[in-house]
Design a binder for these strands. Structure first.
Lengths: 207, 207
DNA sequence: ATATTAACCGGAGAACTCTCCACTTGATAT
DNA sequence: ATATCAAGTGGAGAGTTCTCCGGTTAATAT
């Protein structure tokens, strides 16, 4: 997971690296100007002055491009989460869950455009159900651990584990762009209110 | 909502009505053979022997077409739900919620293809966040009522109402095609297990 | 019967996503 | 230096969604 540059079998050809920069730059510029949702792969290719084929060689779709654009911020998010878990290791699981959710909502508020870009993807190509996408997959593990701990001492019970997995899944769909945007735009909730409601719904236990 | 034929200001031109039948027939045939997700509007138009423009004149997108194809079944679903609510009017709200969810899951299992077709829709055209689509909108109302009743006597409390709305929203995203399919295909849960888990997650109160 | 006209039809075409593949080029070995 | 060849490039093109609009036609009024 930590192979960024150098030490790889075939580092990357110079022209390829240059194109990658061009793509990233163009995408950033266009996303910034028109919003991630409105920008097409075509536009990005044109702006980067490369052919569509070249763009698709590197990023199978806009999702992957957006993900690459956020990579650093995602790492930061998980650092924050781990720090929070460390700090509150003696707190209740629901306290920790609230913290995680709050951190994620903060992240979403910053990178909403790109996050939505990551999640949107033509129904056909959907390789894996995004529950397994890197970001959500990693988050899922963390959430499951909290839910399991919340179930008291019977953590090795299969039913308890299954329910923890399920709850984590549900919390993640609740945090998906689609659902989150609906709460903001249709229901008119503030980020803080959303965090509050999620807590009431998924881990109402008192601290 | 109950204007099917006759009594409308402009009934519908004869040729238009004929085309509608052709479209419905073609769609049904193709969906049945290749699955709703794989069939394009183009194919439907070709199969129905009409131009693409004619197809789009009637149905803005595949969503609407699928919805029209399910209209009757949706009415039946709500009839079932109302009957269930009537029968169990003295039961606990969580019992009723379980019943509703179970009924809906049964519906989904039958009409999964079409339901997915209704929900999938290109990100751009998304008129309203599907939380307001007829099917989900109506379901939402019913769910809210149950959640409110579940909160005991303080049903006029604004916070209680807000939370009921939120929980209903969350339950509905949990029942969306995307989430449901993931539980079935990725997690390998049976419909019954999904109903069970939804109960544990969203209304764990004992009956 | 005839005229009127709103509804309807169909196909061209703009935009897109994504694939394929003939061609080019940079990195490596000799 | 030169040959080699995988990696990289770009654009044609297949297949979609959806819009526009000139021409057509069925229902209604006269």
């Amino acid at each position: 997971m930590d192979d960024k540059e150098e030490a790889a079998p075939r580092p990357e050809r110079r022209d390829a690296a240059e194109n990658r920069q061009r793509i990233l730059g163009a995408a950033l510029r266009l996303f910034d100007r028109h919003g991630a949702g409105q920008v097409s792969m075509n536009q990005i290719a044109t702006e980067a002055q490369i052919g569509p084929g070249t763009l698709y060689r590197r990023y199978r779709n806009k999702s992957e491009l957006c993900l690459d654009l956020m990579k650093d911020n995602i790492v930061l998010l998980f650092d924050d989460i781990e720090a929070y878990l460390e700090t509150h290791r003696d707190g209740s699981p629901s306290l920790r869950l609230r913290g995680i959710v709050s951190l994620f909502v903060g992240f979403r508020e910053k990178k909403n455009q790109l996050l939505a870009g990551v999640e949107e993807s033509p129904p056909a190509n959907r390789t894996r159900p995004r529950a397994l996408s890197p970001l959500y997959g990693q988050l899922h593990e963390i959430l499951v651990a909290q839910f399991e701990e919340m179930s008291g001492s019977a953590q090795d019970n299969a039913a308890v584990q299954a329910n923890a997995v399920f709850k984590a899944d549900m919390l993640l769909v609740a945090l998906s762009s689609e659902s989150y945007a609906a709460q903001r735009d249709v229901r008119g909730l503030s980020p803080e209110e959303i965090v509050e409601q999620l807590g009431l719904t998924f881990f109402p236990e008192r601290d």
